[in-house]
Write a protein that binds this DNA or RNA. Sequence first.
DNA 1: AATGAATGAGCTTTCATTCAT
DNA 2: AATGAATGAAAGCTCATTCAT
Lengths: 219, 219, 219, 219
Amino acid sequence: MPPVDSARERTDKHDLILDAAIEVFAEKGFHHARISDIARRAGVADGTIYLYFRNKDDVLLTIFEEKMGILIRGVRQALQGVADPLQKVRIFARYHFRQVEDHRALAEVLQIELRLSNKFLKEYRPEKLWEYLGVFADIVREGQETGAVRPDLDPFVLMWAFFGSLDELAMQWVLAKHRRDKFSLEATADTVADVFIRGMAGSGSIELHPVVPRTVVES
Amino acid sequence: MPPVDSARERTDKHDLILDAAIEVFAEKGFHHARISDIARRAGVADGTIYLYFRNKDDVLLTIFEEKMGILIRGVRQALQGVADPLQKVRIFARYHFRQVEDHRALAEVLQIELRLSNKFLKEYRPEKLWEYLGVFADIVREGQETGAVRPDLDPFVLMWAFFGSLDELAMQWVLAKHRRDKFSLEATADTVADVFIRGMAGSGSIELHPVVPRTVVES
Amino acid sequence: MPPVDSARERTDKHDLILDAAIEVFAEKGFHHARISDIARRAGVADGTIYLYFRNKDDVLLTIFEEKMGILIRGVRQALQGVADPLQKVRIFARYHFRQVEDHRALAEVLQIELRLSNKFLKEYRPEKLWEYLGVFADIVREGQETGAVRPDLDPFVLMWAFFGSLDELAMQWVLAKHRRDKFSLEATADTVADVFIRGMAGSGSIELHPVVPRTVVES
Amino acid sequence: MPPVDSARERTDKHDLILDAAIEVFAEKGFHHARISDIARRAGVADGTIYLYFRNKDDVLLTIFEEKMGILIRGVRQALQGVADPLQKVRIFARYHFRQVEDHRALAEVLQIELRLSNKFLKEYRPEKLWEYLGVFADIVREGQETGAVRPDLDPFVLMWAFFGSLDELAMQWVLAKHRRDKFSLEATADTVADVFIRGMAGSGSIELHPVVPRTVVES
DNA sequence: AATGAATGAGCTTTCATTCAT
DNA sequence: AATGAATGAAAGCTCATTCAT
């Protein structure tokens, strides 16, 4: 993920609080993090947090919204100038894991703590996530138009399957911190990309594996 | 999923409480479910729950342990007699989604509520999950020995990638209940299986294995 | 007011808490009384209060409800066997002030603290108060039927005027505790009764003061 | 009530704030009214209020002090030129209720919100109220000197009894706004006056004083 | 084994008030 | 005089857990 605030004043309370919250959430977990912990870390009073955010949930959700925005801009930029859809898949995977690796605390919050929030999972519509994944879905659709991607694959299903793989591996990588068995995210990115690229590829692109007709499966 | 415990009486307090808990957790969420809710639903006193479980977390974890045990036995049985590793992948996917579809309340608890428990994500070692996924990792290893699966793929990475796909799609399917846009898990199983089978397959291996009819899975 | 619990166990938590609350409310005021103050005084845990009452307001309202019930039964009993409506007015006044005098803490709560509760003044319908005052309104109506009370007086207005007088004097007597100028409630009862009896009396009963026709006033 | 402050500019912050406060207190209640609400309504900054008033309580108390001052001057003026003490009682009652009727928001604040303030009831000495009621007590004493009022009545007791009646009825009238059963304060004034006049009158005094037409009061 | 009344720790949020500008 | 961003104290209520019966 790109630097959160490349050249702005560090005293802006909004950012100050969010950055403190990311650290505290990553350390203690959302549920166990007290507002006063965040306030102390940010160097402001408890009440100040409520001048910038509605409540504790809002702090978490804002982290999600703002950081996802950055993520979306980042992945679009990384894909710029790349023509081959399958190549884009690899870039997407690498980009995703790179962000996780470069922003561990943030990744931990996004990967784990966000999911601990009832509000997030059940009430909130994570449109920013959909937008992020929409970038991938567009790659699929584009590939299907050029014949690079098999036309029988549902972009919606493929999108969640791809994200599920990235997300689960990122989760395991983050959790590995608490255990002792870290693994390389970089190699993982290529493995996942390889599998999906071969799995998605249209007949014209990977000659070795003819497509099994879908109807057979559904017999 | 098979009957939870075919050989034992259904009035056994242990099972009575777990079944009540699954319903309550699915309805109100783990956090908002009160012990007294579970007790009332199970027809026992609050204190009785503590005769069978250490605490609220333990109830959730026990659901996980016991249900995963059933899942593991079930998937092994579904794979029995199947020789082709790639075919096994398809069966695994179908089996997984079939369980989600047939046990919605349980799936909701396993998919969503389980992740709301700090204990589960950070402190607990979900060995039953590893055992379940180990079945898949073994398929990969086996396939690599016979040449059906590309030897350059890390079974560990592949395992989490595959599970991530299944899990994320199951999550979206469960969450779709709260929204209005359900989709077919059956077709989804085949799409995911297709992508992974092609992605994993060693050269020239795909044509060899005709699809096993679905009835086998459901036996 | 009659003894709250003439011959019952003092360990009943409900009464224990209410009695403690009356004392604490009288001492510190409703707003400044903390639930933990009441709990400590009653010798129970904070949470126990919530087993018997919905919240702090409910404790105050229950005091009102229960004590007013006793007050109503008491005033009815005091009026039993008295035939003359004007005599009943005197008995009502004396009874009211006697209760205030005998139950200072309770009177203070009912007089002062109850009125500090927004809920009570704006949202709550104090039906028990209406029932208590209804006893007085019935005296008026009865007197109007026998000719003892002027027929042109609205019982509703008279009821609130009479209660206002009693209440304000009781308030001043209670507040006098905080100042230094106590006065006799007994003599006060007779003064108020005298004024209202003469003011209410029909022409047949107090010959000296012919009624000024109401129409003149409204000219 | 006469114009609040005829000789001074209406943009004076002091008055601006008080007028805003009366409205806000009447609408939301003293307790739920926030300083920022008053500030916004008055068109000033929060901090500005503290340049004119010590604190929130002081705002309420100042409303009381200033408005009571006006009330005192008003009632004295209404009584000017009236000789008969019993007639004065009627004028007092009419004047009091007329003020309540003409200044609902203010009446609501004085009737209800003022009593919600602990400070007012327990710590504050409402000398302005005493001065207002002193006008009534003086009427009583004066009447006792001329024989128009029974000499055995304690002016202090009578004063609180009379005020209690007025106040309670005004309270019921104000509260009736929240319910649906308004009643006429005008007729009520005469009823209360009638009762007290007869109740206070010395022998043979009543016939002497014809009722003064209402227009005098409204002059 | 079962009960369920009792416990009491735990924490978000509000808002009157301050004070640097 | 005026501002308004920042402060931080303060407490009601819930509910997992216990334990006497």
